[in-house]
């Protein structure tokens, strides 16, 4: 399941809802992305996430379908927020549930790596010198590319 929303989410309630009644699940892996108050040597007071409505949902659904094709997942969830956020705020939740832990761990990491390089979101940070767009990080491309190796 995919959700793109400005509102915060409750991690515990989301995982509870994702797994309720699915008693074949043996483990859930989750990742929560939070807003940092620092980037390099700059302090960040707030951040605004822009996205491409429509394509964002399509890309996330495509990435989730790819994870479900690669691993025996019983349930999965991606929630990504947009709009203005403050340090400590939750930005993204990925949760994956499977009978065994390996599939849950691996697919959770895969989803985050692909989301960071494919889902059309852009961060603008507010620094003491003004607003600046975050540049893409080559290490994110490297993290995503390892899933395409044989």
């Amino acid at each position: 399941m995919i959700r793109v929303q400005p509102e915060d989410f409750d991690v515990g309630a989301e995982i509870e809802a994702l797994t309720r009644g699915k008693t074949g699940i043996g483990g859930v892996a989750s990742f929560v992305g939070l807003m940092r108050d620092v980037a390099g040597d700059k302090s960040i007071s707030a951040m605004t996430l822009e996205h491409y409505p429509g394509m964002t949902e399509r890309e996330l659904e495509r990435i989730e379908a790819e994870a479900q094709r690669r691993w025996p997942l019983i349930a999965s969830l991606v929630i990504h927020r947009y709009g203005r956020m403050l340090p400590g705020d939750r930005i993204v939740l990925v949760a994956t549930a499977s009978a065994h832990r390996a599939a849950a761990f691996e697919s959770c990491e895969f989803l985050m790596d692909y989301l960071k390089t494919k889902a059309p979101f852009w961060k603008q940070e507010e620094t003491p010198e003004g607003a600046r767009w975050v540049a893409a990080d080559a290490s994110d491309d490297a993290a995503a590319s390892r899933w395409t190796k044989e």
Binding site: H80, V92, T117, K118, P120, F121, W122, V134, A136
Partner: peptide
């Protein structure tokens, strides 16, 4: 749509 490399997550 024309945009820079994405920076979400």
């Amino acid at each position: 749509a024309i945009f820079p490399p994405v920076t979400g997550g």
